[in-house]
Simulated assay, not measured.
Amino acid sequence: MRAIIALVVIVYLVGVGVVLAPTIQAKWNSAPASDLVASVGQALPNALAWPASAYRSLIGHG
């Protein structure tokens, strides 16, 4: 049971990283650290909700 929970948590965190990757990549070398952190902070709520947006795209409602 612990292995299943750990797998779900790992998949969730990888998904958050995948959603945040374009934001981080765009600002990594071209912006100051404060701007990078602000951009990640703005993108974080959508990144944390990635399972819902993935579900909506699978059923065709988004």
Score class of each variant (00 low, 15 high):
16 V>G: 00
39 S>M: 04
2 R>I: 05
6 A>G: 07
18 V>P: 00
7 L>T: 09
47 A>S: 07
6 A>R: 09
6 A>S: 08
56 R>T: 10
43 A>E: 02
45 P>H: 02
51 P>E: 01
13 L>S: 06
39 S>L: 04
58 L>V: 14
13 L>F: 15
29 N>K: 09
30 S>C: 06
44 L>T: 06
57 S>R: 15
20 L>E: 01
7 L>R: 08
15 G>D: 00
7 L>G: 13
21 A>F: 06
22 P>W: 01
58 L>I: 12
42 Q>E: 13
48 L>A: 07
31 A>W: 03
51 P>C: 01
30 S>Y: 05
39 S>R: 05
26 A>D: 07
40 V>Y: 00
61 H>G: 07
34 S>R: 10
10 I>H: 04
32 P>N: 15
16 V>R: 02
46 N>L: 09
28 W>D: 03
35 D>H: 10
40 V>K: 04
57 S>W: 15
14 V>W: 09
52 A>Q: 13
24 I>D: 02
9 V>M: 11
9 V>T: 14
13 L>Y: 02
42 Q>Y: 07
56 R>M: 11
52 A>Y: 14
54 A>Y: 10
8 V>D: 07
53 S>A: 07
52 A>H: 04
32 P>M: 04
20 L>H: 00
33 A>R: 15
50 W>N: 02
4 I>W: 09
23 T>N: 02
10 I>Q: 05
56 R>E: 13
15 G>R: 00
42 Q>G: 12
48 L>K: 03
53 S>Q: 05
52 A>S: 14
44 L>C: 01
12 Y>F: 11
8 V>N: 07
42 Q>T: 12
19 V>W: 03
54 A>R: 11
